[in-house]
Design a protein around this nucleic acid. Sequence first.
DNA 1: TGCACACTGTGATAGTTTTCACAAAAGTTT
DNA 2: AAACTTTTGTGAAAACTATCACAGTGTGCA
Lengths: 222, 222
Amino acid sequence: MNANKGKTISDKGLRRLPKILSYLQELQQYGENTVTCTPIAENIGCDPTQARKDLAACGAVGRPRTGYDITELIALIETFLGWNNMSEAFLAGAGNLGSALLGFRNFREQQGLDIVCAFDNDPAKIGTEIYGREILPISKLSNLARRMHVLIGIIAVPAESAQGAADAMVAGGIRAIWNFSPKTLEVPENTFVEHADLSVSLGALTAKLNLALKKEEVEHGR
Amino acid sequence: MNANKGKTISDKGLRRLPKILSYLQELQQYGENTVTCTPIAENIGCDPTQARKDLAACGAVGRPRTGYDITELIALIETFLGWNNMSEAFLAGAGNLGSALLGFRNFREQQGLDIVCAFDNDPAKIGTEIYGREILPISKLSNLARRMHVLIGIIAVPAESAQGAADAMVAGGIRAIWNFSPKTLEVPENTFVEHADLSVSLGALTAKLNLALKKEEVEHGR
DNA sequence: TGCACACTGTGATAGTTTTCACAAAAGTTT
DNA sequence: AAACTTTTGTGAAAACTATCACAGTGTGCA
Ligand SMILES: NC(=O)c1ccc[n+]([C@@H]2O[C@H](COP(=O)([O-])OP(=O)(O)OC[C@H]3O[C@@H](n4cnc5c(N)ncnc54)[C@H](O)[C@@H]3O)[C@@H](O)[C@H]2O)c1
Ligand SMILES: NC(=O)c1ccc[n+]([C@@H]2O[C@H](COP(=O)([O-])OP(=O)(O)OC[C@H]3O[C@@H](n4cnc5c(N)ncnc54)[C@H](O)[C@@H]3O)[C@@H](O)[C@H]2O)c1
């Protein structure tokens, strides 16, 4: 059933891989050739066994006493994540955040993601260029996506327009949506949505800080 | 031991709260007064029991047959997340992403986060203003943080400068760091780090798409 | 006033993820 | 070359999370 030699990876495991990859690239820059699970685990903050199992899921084979070959590991993880060859993506919403995403070179250089053009509904923006990418009217998204076989869409429009943008993407055959709006999207079964809701991340942080401060207050108060 | 009536919430549960909150605010705009767990669960994509337990962790009490009072629920969640009163934050790195964060009004309006000023090491940026916030030299971060009792720091500098920025924040008494760089940070025990690594989110998306496409290819091939 | 219903609250159960424990393998030292 | 050390790979146990099942309860309706 599973293509990858019967190994599976959990969603949580999947999310450790980019962090491991980033650490491996750092090691490679320092001239390292091999690495064992312990420093990887330490760096990303998990158990060494966990790291070993995540790597195994990508098809990595290590050697006792030596560890894993870094170059090979990087290649395996990149392939697993689909970062080894370039994928084209469309961006909906060339505002504040959308522009930042357009200007981020790492997507192309590291993650194999090429945001080929951006779509907006603001007449003042349509026709202009941001970091070399033309801004097109949102009405053209569906047709162009189908014509260009673009499979990845990025949503950086306000919450109230998010579902509309998602619908246009789905209509254009887009199969994976990276959603930066806080709105939960409704999409067909065969479409993946990754909800990069920053307020979730911020909430986790402030809640923990809040709880800790309250606890300290109580301890100090006594 | 636990301040909140013995109820605890897992990290995963915590991350559902901002989504629930966002949905509740939407309902409130439509003029709803009460809500039950079923639509909440449907909207954020979890089991109704889960939602009920998350709400219980915030101290919410519902009424059989009626559900929960939306206004009360919003207040409870906001308090739990620490979004009910304004917190001041410092931003390190007023580049591409940092500027987008400075320009995002929701942080102040919805999440009680006020990014009061930004720090950079680029002489061309220092002294200028972005969305009404002055850009100061990074060397002043520690002292100012301590003087202003700022507890939240946001890192939007390149990976290689991230640890340095974190160190400056810790030195200034900052206790919660929202890290947008891919670098894993080393901080003391009493400091929280939330790693908003977008490559993690992107990796999860592209890996799933990749896997699905491969599977479909195999199915089609036969 | 009482009966039926729809929902909450929660202990029990199932499922998933992480950690543990240990055998097998590959270098290293003597 | 043998003993020793370090690290992988993996099945088993523990911890955590989500789902189920159902008792309890307030509300609306007769
Ligand atoms: N800026 C941030 O730092 C930040 C942080 C977290 C989340 N977000 C989320 O990202 C999204 C965008 O935020 P932003 O700050 O870039 O807002 P923005 O207002 O700067 O940009 C939104 C862009 O979308 C365009 N737009 C509006 N409706 C559209 C439609 N129907 N079709 C196509 N384009 C449309 C607007 O013209 C504008 O260019 C929001 O959902 C916001 O919640 C932003
Ligand atoms: N732009 C994006 O969409 C995006 C997406 C994901 C992650 N990120 C991450 O966010 C971070 C910033 O990205 P960006 O695109 O804004 O980069 P950028 O180059 O546009 O901005 C970085 C800013 O940090 C400043 N800086 C550099 N070293 C510094 C130091 N030691 N102290 C203080 N300031 C310093 C620079 O002067 C610059 O203004 C990076 O770590 C990047 O990986 C960005």
